[in-house]
Design a protein around this nucleic acid. Structure first.
Length: 800
DNA sequence: AGCACGCCGACT
DNA sequence: GTCGGCGTGCTC
């Protein structure tokens, strides 16, 4: 008997291990490790992943696998191994890790139905209105469950559990000629004279060249109803069958074929060691540090070309917001149909189909966001992470992995190079490059030798002092007007959407807070309501102060919405487009706005984060950063780094082509080194400066971090538990490690639940992970019963 | 995570 | 007496 060891689809501590199942004879040899199966688990049936086959088992009451859910493994040997490693490194459950590796369509849906038995009672017949079965949901809705319970207990009905496979393939109907073309002429005459449409169709087939075509398509082209095709199928002239079809998100797009560009000297120098690593099939991590516009992408493209030439495959990771059609175009343009694209804006079905192209080895390259790092290639030749410093490579849900770590792990397995590319590398990566752990490659010149645009920093305190209370400094405003006149384009950047950040009473200083969270509420103009961005609580806008009844309520802070209103008022002749989460939710909105701007139908593009990347339009000659401080004062040790990166990134949008560009940065803290050095485009000095700050604060890259957050509705309980965890950790880690806490989280209450945390800073702590696991085990009873929640984030990016 | 089982208080 | 509340422990 063959035994399958299965990881079941139950993310909990008690079930985070293999369960043995016997494989029924009919599937012996067919069921393999890496396949999904449906298995009985307690009274239900659920999904599971086979991780190993075995000859024997110690389990006495073993059950059969119900059925396989795949025809071929969805996780290969490498990914199963990688799963083990990730489980250890992120302290999460195996199933969660497996799900993170696969398209969402492979996550099972469960369904329960109540089915009547043969010898059912009359009463039950009445309940089910004569039907055989009813879905659990339906019964619940119609409040039939109490009555049905009794019927189940007395054996008149039973509960049946289903595992529903959501991974549906799209099918299309195609027809094919079964006779030789020269026979068609005869057939045309043999058809009855009243079969006008059939004749028309045969005539069309005579003229067209190819044998196989999609049924719906053919009907349209021949201008006949579908029934004509059916008739010919019936007569045996056409044969009909279903063919699997991919949902192609880029179906209606033509990609202009491009060929390799000649490389600059710098690019060639950078290329050499990469090619060497590809050729020698040795793993090495490269940090490609190249200023904006230095041609990193061309290096990627030519390295991939070499990999493909060797018959191997490539993964390219790009931050989610940078996955614009422009970016996709560059890869599809070079490698055509060899490219699959994976990101979360595709539908579940589209994601599944792109994934299947990879699994079936129909593509050589995948370009995608974070989770594309798990692309099931078996002969990886290179992994590229563009904009390496982006925080979106860290997953903020369980399993909290970093795509960079996974990339390097896979690079080791496949013995292939990993390239981390950035104009503003993360401190972690640059430090590793300095130490020689990564191989540093530098592109210091822009491709067309164009100088970086001059950046001027405007002190907004000065503006205020000289009586300018608007959100535009005189300098920025004059320049916008100048561009309008010259018919050149302006990009305005503000890292905050919405209207106003908070409202405050001028008399007593009251700021409206969310009653469920420790955070001020945001004013939304469109709905004219106050909203909490953390729990979604909404309430009306007060007309008088709840504290002192004054009516001097004023709006503070600005979002993109407010800036837009202001611009319309000040520059009524300007054509403005706004781009932020609120204007890009609908599918394709992103592309439409950019297209609109690119074609010159707007003068000013106003937006958040998402316009900082990839924009490359020749007519942009002015970039304005309305408030450089927004990211700077967050309670996050990476705040300065993020600010520097963002400013550098945004500045790079101006003057990329013939026209010269300039950048205006508005700030209340012009003396801060991240703003100063970003204005001077001096990464190296910023790196040195920031490194000394990190050293003083004992932060990465000098230390690793682990963050434990305790959440519960009872404050006392939260504090007690966090204290206990803290002292337990203290006795389990070495003297070299630093333990901070317990302290309240930066947002101490969300959704009426208090949050406390402790932070561990460490260098080498072999016992830390097992200590953290012990904490989870110890509090497991309380977590499941008492609503206590403990989260562990290894190397957190979001400290909230 | 779900689900059954089992033990207690509140009604028919 | 029975119904149904939720604490406890198990799932190959």
């Amino acid at each position: 008997m063959t035994i399958a060891q299965v990881i079941v689809d139950v993310p909990s501590l008690g079930t985070d291990r293999v369960f043995d199942y016997s494989i029924p004879k009919k599937w012996e040899g067919m069921i393999q490790p890496g396949m999904r199966v449906a298995v009985p688990f307690g009274p239900r049936s659920i999904q599971g992943f086979v991780v190993r086959l075995n000859e024997h088992t110690d389990v006495e009451k073993i059950k059969n696998i119900i059925q396989p859910l795949d025809l071929a493994p969805v996780l290969n040997e490498e990914l199963l191994q990688l799963g083990n490693w990730m489980t250890r490194e992120t302290i999460s459950y195996k199933v969660s890790v497996f799900h993170a590796m696969l398209p969402v369509a492979m996550k099972a849906k469960y369904e329960k139905i109540i089915r009547k038995k043969d010898d059912a009672s009359l009463f039950l017949d009445e309940l089910l209105e004569g039907k055989q079965e009813i879905s659990w949901k339906e019964a619940e809705k119609r409040n039939l469950l109490p009555a049905l319970y009794k019927e189940i207990q007395s054996g008149n009905a039973e509960v049946i559990y289903f595992v529903k496979n959501r991974a549906r393939k799209k099918l299309k109907r195609v027809v094919e000629l079964t006779v030789e073309k020269d026979k068609l002429e005869e057939l045309l005459h043999a058809l009855p004279s009243n079969a006008v449409n059939q004749k028309k169709l045969v005539f069309h087939l005579l003229q067209s060249n190819n044998g196989m075509s999609e049924a719906a398509d053919l009907a349209k082209k021949a201008e006949v109803p579908a029934s004509a095709i059916k008739a010919l199928v019936k007569k045996g002239i056409l044969s009909e069958h279903m063919v699997e079809e991919y949902r192609d998100p880029y179906e209606h797009k033509d990609f202009k074929k491009t060929s390799p560009l000649p490389l600059t000297n710098e690019q060639q120098t950078a290329m050499k060691p990469i090619l060497q690593s590809i050729e020698q099939q040795s793993h090495e991590t490269f940090l490609l540090y190249g200023v904006t516009g230095s041609g990193k992408t061309e290096v990627y493209l030519q390295a991939i070309q070499e990999v493909i030439k060797q018959g191997k495959e490539a993964i390219v990771l790009v931050p989610e917001i940078a996955l614009t059609p422009q970016m996709v175009e560059r890869f599809k343009g070079r490698f055509g149909s060899d490219v699959a694209v994976l990101h979360s804006r595709l539908s579940i079905g589209e994601q599944y189909d792109e994934w299947r192209k990879i699994q079936k080895k129909e593509v050589k390259v995948v370009v995608g966001a974070r989770s594309a790092i798990f692309a099931p290639f078996e002969h990886l030749g290179i992994i590229i992470i563009d904009e390496e410093h982006e925080s979106s490579y860290k997953q903020e849900e369980i399993p909290r992995y970093h795509a960079r770590d996974v990339a390097i792990k896979r690079g080791e397995y496949h013995q292939c190079p990993v390239i981390l590319g950035s104009a503003t590398p993360s401190l972690e990566s640059f430090a590793r490059a300095q130490k020689g752990v990564y191989h540093l490659l530098t592109l210091s010149k822009r491709m067309n030798d164009r100088a970086m645009p001059p950046v001027s920093v405007v002190d907004m305190r000065e503006e205020l002092r000289s009586g300018n209370r608007s959100m535009f400094s005189t300098e920025l405003f004059e320049r916008i007007k100048d561009r309008l006149q010259k018919k050149e384009q302006t990009v305005l950047f503000l890292n905050r959407r919405g209207h106003s950040t908070f409202i405050m009473c001028r008399d007593c200083g009251y700021v409206m807070q969310c009653p469920h969270c420790d955070i001020s509420m945001t004013y939304h103009r469109s709905s004219n309501e106050m909203k909490c961005h953390y729990c979604g609580f909404q309430t009306g806008v007060p007309t008088e102060c709840p504290e002192c009844s004054s009516n001097h309520i004023r709006y503070f802070g600005m979002g993109t919405q407010k800036v837009e209103e202001e611009l319309v008022k000040l520059l009524p002749e300007a054509r403005i487009v706004r781009m932020d989460v609120d204007t890009t939710t609908r599918k394709g909105a992103h592309e439409r706005i950019l297209e609109h701007f690119q074609s010159g139908k707007a003068d000013i593009l106003l937006g958040t984060q998402m316009i900082a990347k990839g924009l490359d339009f020749p007519n942009i000659t002015l970039v304005g950063v309305l408030s450089a401080d927004t990211t700077l004062h967050l309670p996050d040790f990476r705040a300065a780094e993020k600010t520097f990166q963002l400013l550098t990134q945004v500045s790079g949008r101006a003057g990329r082509h013939e026209l010269l560009g300039e950048v205006v940065v508005q700030t209340y803290t012009p003396e801060h080194y991240s703003i100063q050095l970003a204005a001077m485009q001096d990464y190296q000095r910023f790196y040195n400066e920031e490194m000394s700050m990190r050293k003083i604060g004992s932060y990465p890259p000098f230390y690793y971090l682990a963050l434990v957050t305790v959440i519960h509705e009872d404050l006392l309980q939260v504090v007690t538990v966090t204290e206990k965890i803290s002292s337990f950790l203290k006795s389990n880690i070495s003297k070299e490690a630093i333990l901070l806490g317990p302290v309240a989280s930066p947002i101490p209450k969300i959704n009426n639940r208090y949050r406390y945390q402790c932070l561990i800073k460490y260098k080498r702590e072999p016992n830390l992970f097992s200590a953290l696991r012990k904490i989870l085990e110890h509090y497991n009873p309380q977590t499941s019963r008492d609503g206590l929640s403990i989260t562990i984030d290894i190397n957190p990016y979001n400290m909230m």
